[in-house]
Design a protein around this nucleic acid. Sequence first.
DNA 1: TACCAGGAGAAAA
DNA 2: TTTTCTCATGGT
Length: 224
Amino acid sequence: MEPEALRRVHEVLVACFGPQDWWPAESAFEIMVGAILTQNTAWTNVERALMRLQARIPLSAEAILRLDSDELADALRPSGYFNVKSQRLRSFCEAYLQAGGLSGLDRLPTPALRAWLLGLKGVGPETADDILLYAFERPVFIVDAYTRRIFSRLGLLAGKEPYERIRDAFERALGPDVPLLKEYHALIVQQGKAVCRSRPACDRCALWQTCAAAADSLDPSSAG
DNA sequence: TACCAGGAGAAAA
DNA sequence: TTTTCTCATGGT
């Protein structure tokens, strides 16, 4: 993964979409809850679920654990997979409190914190890195379906590389720059929504084509 | 009506 | 080890 190519893509995405200022949440704990609820789910549905949950309880691990299981699942219904996600959220809250909450976990070095997250049921690599980057402000790169789609379109990824290989390549190329890593992922999500799965790109990908043209214009080797 | 969305875990091959 | 199946609502 060429660092220069990744920086150029970032320039193009900033030019197309502007600053994103992510993650949309009021607290680190809300980021963690959102990261679990957004698994394979549109963010608008996650927002509905968060609103329903906050209409019932203040958003805290203690309050979630006090909530009846059925009522928790019902609150999460709009985010889909509500039975699965209610169990995952409860087990996350139990482990979170046991580990000393935000301050307790924040004392861990990044590799240990990542290992702790990955040891939780329902937290895979993407969710763990969402939490590490946005809730704990640790320098990790998040690899999601949009990352694979966009960078395979650009010819920079084959698309089926293992998660860790892609993450490592991006982190080495971009360096431990938390604001950059946050913004880059947010921009990828914005761009990813404009890129459909069909090949070659269809009309729905007009925005993507605009960005691709902008990328070409920034690439001195592709002039002409 | 059919497809897709900011995944993860379990089972099957 | 890799692939397939399951979980589920809401928008287009």
